[in-house]
Amino acid sequence: MTIRVLALVGSLRAGSHNRQLAETAIKHAPDGVTVEIYDGLGELPFYNEDLDTEAGAPESAGRLRSAVSSADAVLVFSPEYNGTMPAVLKNAIDWLSRPFGNGALQGKPTAVVGTAFGQYGGVWAQEEARKSAGIAGAKVVDEVLLAIPHSVTRFAEVHPGSDTEVVEGLSKTLGRLVTEVA
């Protein structure tokens, strides 16, 4: 059995260090685990109940919901923007929280990791993302924390996949997610 982990990256920037972390998770996933990056977060309209009706939701929201529903677990990569998670990530969680009590995140093992420029590596953003995902119904894995500080200087010359500490942290996180799925 292959365990499918869907990665949601909260930065849309092409050179995003958080996207590089997600790419590292793909490369270093343990045997029997695949990690796939979801690339459509930038296409989602802002959550609006007028758009999310019994008749349907925007196609981009349907694709996200379907991708999360078919995954065994979710791994969120969050930078920190002004002390919290980026709007694109919060918006995705809002879409995934509906329909209320039966959204795509309901009971889904979910972990949050990331890197940020500041000295704490985005811990505030990660805390907010865990809180929001948990309220949306996810089974948040709180035991594994990976907040990598000083991203701009730490990864200026080195890809996160070449950083032993990063690879070990992602491996531990994926291992914990696998345990939650099993």
Rank of each mutant, 00 (worst) to 15 (best):
E36D: 13
V144W: 00
G83K: 15
I135M: 11
A25S: 06
P160F: 06
L89I: 08
A87L: 06
H17E: 03
Y120M: 11
S16E: 02
A182I: 09
S171R: 12
F77Q: 01
G62E: 14
V35N: 03
G83L: 07
L21G: 05
N102W: 09
E127Y: 12
A136D: 02
V68W: 01
T34P: 05
I37K: 04
G103T: 01
H150S: 12
H17T: 04
L6I: 15
A25G: 05
V158S: 07
V158R: 12
N48K: 11
A29P: 05
T24W: 01
N102K: 15
V112W: 00
T179W: 06
V158P: 00
N102L: 11
A125T: 11
G56A: 14
M1P: 13
G101N: 11
L8G: 05
N48M: 14
E157G: 06
T53Y: 12
H28K: 07
R19G: 00
S171V: 08
V68E: 12
T173W: 01
E59N: 13
V152M: 09
L105H: 05
T115V: 09
T110C: 13
L6R: 02
R4V: 12
S171C: 05
G134N: 07
L6A: 04
V144T: 05
D94K: 15
Q119C: 12
A14L: 09
I3R: 04
F155V: 03
V140D: 01
S132W: 04
F117A: 13
N91F: 03
S171A: 09
T153P: 05
V5K: 04
H150A: 13
E23N: 10
G10E: 07
T84Q: 10
A136K: 02
G122L: 02
K27C: 05
L105F: 07
V88W: 02
G103V: 05
A22T: 08
R19L: 00
G169A: 09
